Amino acid sequence: MTRHDDRFRENRFETLAVGAAENATHSDKGGTSDVIPPIHLSSTFEWASGDDANEHDYSRKSNPTRAALEEQLARLEGGEHGLAFASGMAAISTTMLSLVPPGGHLVSSDSVYSGTEKLLTESIANHFGVNVEFVDAREPENVDAAVDSDTDLIWAETPTNPLMRLCDIRSIADIAHDHAIPFGVDNTFASPYFQAPLELGADIAVHSTTKYLNGHSDSIGGAIVTDDDEIFEKLAFSQQIGFGNMLSPFDCYLVTRGIKTLPARMDHHQENAMAVARLLEAHDRVARVHYPGLESHPQYDLAAKQMSGYSGMLSFEFDGTMAEIEAFIDSLEIFTPGTSLGGVESLIEVPSLMIPDKVSHRSDTTEIPETLVRISVGIEHTDDLREDLRTALP
């Protein structure tokens, strides 16, 4: 079932996220009417022919628990096909390696997650001879200028990590379609609740399910959703046969469980993030706040146009020394220093301090300021979060 099926056409996102009716193992189909899809740990399934044939035979190729999650992911993104992977990077690398041949051409937004950047520059380019061209995708004409008849894939991340930049998905999708090139979007920061790349014209939506989709910081995973049958076949072959990068049944269960509360969590994440962003914007030791929901964000109009909300991710530039930033981090009681994001707990990261080997210095347009602080705002009480920051800031 997908969001396009007649039966669920009128259902709202919250209903799709809970997914009880869609995911139940109905007794008339040999199931036990579970409201929650059970965890199928079996690596293999009994073979039968004809009418008794089982759609699953080996869990690397297909597993009932994973199939339930993949159908749910497709519904949430409004796509026809979903695939669940062992990590977000597994989903990204599968997309790129399946759709871009050795010696091919890939155009990517220049502001991307550091893991994606290293994959593109050190693996895709060096080992497979792919011409990877980074462009400032905030301006669609830069993408258009980079694309030619040899381009195999356009890739973008929006909002970006950690600078919170946006790209115009619909405009870039139009460029991709004019050239008959697939266009993939990393939708991790927004989640399907706040942004629908496929509805805006993208061919592929990718997620690290580790983040908002699971939402509880207890599972590593990735996902791809697409409307394109041919793209799906290529990606499914790579997931199941080529790379074997599928998500385990237990992790599928965890993500399925997390998705049920995604709408409620995202609303709370956004409410808290907006309150934190406004507090920081008004503080005299904060030089700049990067949050698409603030009117001061240079792409606020685009955010309001293509997103239904702004998520819980923000970053800000601290006006002070690195020693003062360390003292600020050490003084926090609720915000935990950590490099992940999207969980119910609030995390804070200083990239130059905590992950200096991953900070990009590729170009002036993507340089991450030394004093940049990234916050994943959780779902604790708003007043407690604000007070924690207010007390710790010098």
Rank of each mutant, 00 (worst) to 15 (best):
I329W: 04
T188Y: 03
G82M: 00
S93C: 10
T188K: 01
S59M: 11
I224C: 04
G378S: 05
A20P: 00
V147A: 04
A304T: 12
N131F: 00
L97C: 04
E10H: 09
L119G: 01
E46C: 06
S360R: 07
L347V: 10
T256S: 15
G242Y: 03
G222S: 06
K260G: 08
L247N: 04
S149C: 03
C167W: 07
L163N: 08
C167P: 01
E22Q: 14
L353A: 08
D5V: 05
D51M: 15
S109G: 15
P351H: 12
S363M: 07
Y113D: 13
Q72I: 00
E133M: 07
G79D: 00
S98I: 08
S340F: 12
D110C: 14
S62M: 10
R7I: 13
T15A: 15
D227Y: 00
F189H: 11
L200N: 05
D168R: 12
S219V: 14
L294N: 04
L198H: 03
G338F: 14
A282T: 10
G320N: 10
I181S: 00
A180C: 07
T121M: 11
E281V: 02
A273C: 15
R165I: 08
N187T: 05
P351G: 09
S208K: 06
S238R: 12
A21Y: 11
R362K: 14
I379G: 02
L41P: 01
Q72L: 14
M354G: 03
L247Q: 12
R9D: 14
R170S: 15
T188L: 01
T371C: 05
V225A: 02
E380V: 00
D6C: 07
